[in-house]
Design a protein around this nucleic acid. Structure first.
Length: 641
DNA sequence: ATAGGGTTAG
């Protein structure tokens, strides 16, 4: 790199003289300030924009000059030395420079950065004149440190004081709105911006995209995004993250492709967001592609990228690979521990999850948080460990002083329900400090289903239907419970209620990735190009299964149709089609990963166990609740799910 | 002098 050339063009040098405040422009710059510049520009300094030297002894000759103070203050800000800054603040007041906005801005910055927002505020309040810079710096302090409401109040305050917000103000306020999930103010700011000359600004637009995304309005975010004529990497990243954070991982993945097509190079943030989307979509081939891309771009040793890969491999069923990457991390942050622990938990590797949790506590570099406990508690739950779950819950409350959320209670209810300890589970629900939500009742219901506890199951379902009157799945479950216990009339009644309310069951769908493409299947789907072969394969397998004594269970089909038809409906369940497709299109021995939008039905569970044995394949089904690993005729859920 | 994007659970 031509060092000298870069120094000459250094924007900081140019802008410093050009932007000097008018009342200072007439001042003859003391030699000391040139000395300071010269030091900063000396060829030995790696870059021209590096902070001024910490030692300012060479400036002592002109102790009261403006440049003297800006220079020292700048080093204080860079070094974060609060004490020196305070001393200087005192001297500024004495020397009559106390009302200078440039100096005040730097001081506000310093105080805020060191966590003394109150002090920054007092300084701000004491200023006779406040320009837009000063307002912005204080807003930034509150937008970063909180309380973020204050950032929004300050924004309103500056407008009332007749100071016009600029292209720096809007992104700051929008960031505060995003953090507060304050959509109302966010929209107001949007309206406001449109009337100013900053409506087209990339930074402002990026702020709007992010604000809408964080508030859950992906479509509004997209509308803003689409209106941007020239998009840079950050704006693309914001939009990709918007999809990922709002449960649309496939959109995020395709947008990443569009970004590359538009000639914008993915950054590390792009990869982290996209890999996380691939994790959510269980798109292992795509995730591996991104892994390779990150490697080639030279991001391979960055921990944040690795953490997203840990999550991606774990969610795609490659827990061991996730562990290898986890071990490679330079520094294990809380998020990395959580990703790995949760990864073990969701696959039912309860022992490994707990072992890692203990290791985390022993290393004591990070403290477990509420997410860690969701991870270990759900691990216990998949492993049926009641004692451990109760112990961990106590540990969380007593030792770590973490207030249990509904999710923690849900895990506990789940584990108790699994074990058939309904009294305890129900007492726990009744003793909760918050209103039980649908997750709690769903967990209780799940236990009731396993242990055929009709009484409590009915109650849980009534609650569920109250809470989610639009969710057809609840009605189906209730009718299934009645049917299982032979109460056909009740079953019919519930189904009628469902039709009367105009509710339709969500159509089951399963998908599998193959050669970078997602192959989706609906129930009874015949639209796949290889459909004939898929059904042939299923028939072949069924023949082998009947030889092994398998009889189809048509219980989950309640339509008023004949037995043969019921049989056909079960045999063409979406997950079976996806598995059959996987079997005929991959070499023997390849592990299959199928994702499903609902739960796996009982009959499919039996069938997939058999397929894993007959075809000698490891099959992983990721259903809406959990993972099932089928190996050699057995499932990791041990038939409890 | 100041500004926008990224990972864990649900």
């Amino acid at each position: 790199m031509p060092l000298l050339g870069r120094q000459r063009m250094s924007p900081s040098v140019l802008s410093k003289s050009r932007n000097a405040p008018s009342h200072r422009r007439g001042l003859r710059r003391p030699l000391s300030s040139f000395l300071c510049r010269a030091t900063a520009l000396a060829p030995t300094t790696p870059i021209a924009v590096s902070p001024p030297p910490r030692s300012n002894s060479h400036l002592a000759s002109s102790p009261h000059s403006y440049y003297h103070y800006t220079s020292i203050l700048q080093s204080c800000v860079a070094a974060g030395s609060l004490r020196a800054g305070r001393q200087l603040h005192g001297r500024l007041l004495v020397s009559g420079l106390g009302s200078d906005t440039v100096l005040a801005t730097k001081l506000v910055d310093l105080y805020a950065a060191r966590g003394h927002v109150g002090q920054a505020r007092r300084l701000f309040d004491g200023m006779p004149k406040r320009n837009v810079f000063l307002w912005n710096v204080l807003i930034r302090a509150y937008a970063r440190e909180g309380p973020r409401e204050t950032a929004v109040q300050l924004y309103h305050g500056m407008v009332e004081h007749g100071v016009e917000p600029d292209n720096f103000t809007y992104p700051l306020v929008l960031k505060a709105c995003a953090a507060l999930l304050d959509l109302k103010t966010g929209r107001e700011v949007h309206e406001c911006v449109l009337g100013t000359r900053w409506g087209e600004d990339v930074f402002v637009r990026a702020g709007l995209v992010d604000m809408y995304a964080k508030c859950g309005c992906v479509d509004d975010a997209r509308a803003v995004f689409d209106g941007i004529a020239v998009r840079d990497a950050v704006v693309w990243n914001s939009m990709i993250a918007a999809y990922g954070q709002n449960g649309q991982p496939m959109e995020a993945l395709s947008l990443c492709r569009d970004m590359a097509t538009n000639g914008v190079w993915p950054t590390i943030a792009t990869l982290v967001s996209t890999i996380s989307a691939a994790a959510d979509a269980a798109a292992l081939p795509r995730g591996r592609e991104l892994h390779g891309f990150g490697w080639r771009r030279g991001f391979w040793q960055q921990d944040k990228l690795k953490t997203s890969l840990v999550d991606m491999y774990a969610k795609s069923g490659w827990v061991q690979v996730a562990r290898v990457l986890f071990e490679q991390l330079m520094k294990r942050e809380l998020v990395s521990w959580n990703a790995m622990i949760c990864g073990y938990g969701m696959h039912g590797h309860a022992d490994e999850a707990l072992e890692l949790f203990n290791k985390m506590r022993a290393e004591a570099q990070v403290t477990p948080d509420n997410i860690t406990f969701v991870g270990v508690l759900s691990a216990c739950n998949h492993g049926g460990m009641v004692k451990e779950a109760k112990y961990l819950f106590g540990l969380m409350v007593d030792v770590y002083s973490i207030k249990p959320t509904v999710q923690h209670f849900t895990c506990l209810v789940d584990v108790l329900g699994h074990a058939g300890r309904f009294e305890e589970a129900y007492d726990l629900i009744k003793g909760m400090s918050m209103e039980p939500d649908s997750g709690i009742w769903g967990a209780l219901l799940n236990g009731c289903k396993i242990h055929k506890n009709i009484e409590l199951g009915e109650l849980a379902l009534q609650k569920l239907i109250e809470l989610e009157p639009e969710d057809a799945g609840n009605y189906v479950l209730l009718s299934n419970i009645y049917a299982q216990s032979g109460k056909w009339e009740n079953a019919a009644k519930v189904r009628k209620l469902m039709t009367n309310r105009g509710l339709k069951k969500i159509i089951a769908c399963s998908w599998i990735e193959f050669k970078g493409r997602t192959h989706g299947f609906l129930v009874g789907d015949a639209s796949h190009p290889r459909s004939d072969e898929i059904y042939e394969e299923l028939e072949r397998l069924e023949g082998l299964m009947s030889d092994a004594g398998y009889v189809p269970d048509t219980m989950p089909v309640f339509h008023n149709v004949g037995d043969d038809e019921k049989r056909n409906m079960v045999r063409s369940h979406s997950e079976r089609l996806a598995i059959a497709f996987g079997l005929i299109s991959t070499p023997p021995g390849t592990k299959l990963l199928v994702t499903k939008n609902l739960r796996v039905c009982e009959d499919c569970h039996v069938v997939i166990k058999l397929i894993s044995q007959i075809a000698q394949r490891e099959i992983i089904i990721r259903d809406v609740n959990r993972y099932h690993h089928f190996v050699n005729g057995e499932c990791s859920c041990k038939d409890y799910w």
